[in-house]
């Protein structure tokens, strides 16, 4: 089996927003919609002892995905490899998945009326290419791969480093792992 996941190495992320822009251009997103914004936690501390982290957000492609479960039309789909995507033909724009997403990573497009979200660039990754956000990250802060393959980089990172998942206590089993630390350690 394949289980796609992403590791965010926050020690390497410099908050340049390249991934955000690459995604926006690749997916031709409306002006107000971002699939993967980068937020900044901090700075914390007192000068000169300061630290902060840039945290790239995106759809967590949860294994127990609340957005898929609440969809009344079956437009929100999860494939066997874990990728969650929206079928725009079936979507009625009810907003249930937007309300259900704990990460605010689903958006209603005012033009078409349907819900839009990150699909891990599924057409690319199934051709063994990287998602655009990973491909464009010059700091290698985003690592994508198959978590079920013990030799993949994501598997090795998740197994060997302390990683965190956002709002993991909600029980959604998010598939984006964050290596947390201060810059320059990676």
């Amino acid at each position: 089996m394949t289980r796609f996941a992403m590791v965010m190495d926050t020690r390497r992320c410099v908050g340049c927003d390249s991934c955000t822009i690459a995604c926006k251009i690749q997916n031709d997103l409306p002006l107000q919609i971002f699939f993967n914004p980068v937020v900044t936690d901090g700075p914390h501390g007192i000068y000169p002892q300061l630290h902060m982290n840039h945290i790239p957000l995106m759809c967590m492609h949860c294994a127990e995905s609340p957005c898929v479960h609440v969809c009344p039309t079956g437009a929100s789909k999860q494939d066997d490899d874990g990728i969650i995507w929206v079928d725009p033909v079936s979507c009625i724009g009810c907003g249930a998945c937007i309300a259900a997403c704990p990460y605010d990573m689903r958006h209603k497009d005012k033009g078409s009326g349907v819900c839009m979200k990150c699909d891990f660039c599924k057409d690319r990754v199934r051709k063994r290419q990287e998602p655009h956000c990973v491909w464009t990250c010059h700091q290698r802060a985003r690592i994508f791969g198959d978590l079920d393959d013990p030799n993949s980089e994501v598997s090795r990172l998740v197994a060997s480093l302390r990683t965190e998942r956002l709002l993991a206590d909600l029980g959604t089993d998010p598939q984006v792992y964050y290596i947390v630390g201060t810059g320059g350690q990676g």
Partner: peptide, 24 residues
């Protein structure tokens, strides 16, 4: 009226197990 695609409302009656489908 609140739907993004109001004319497609009938899709909510498709065979899904969502709470919203049950409610509809």
């Amino acid at each position: 009226f609140e739907l993004g695609r109001p004319l497609q409302f009938w899709r909510v009656f498709s065979t899904q197990r969502a709470v919203l489908t049950f409610g509809a």
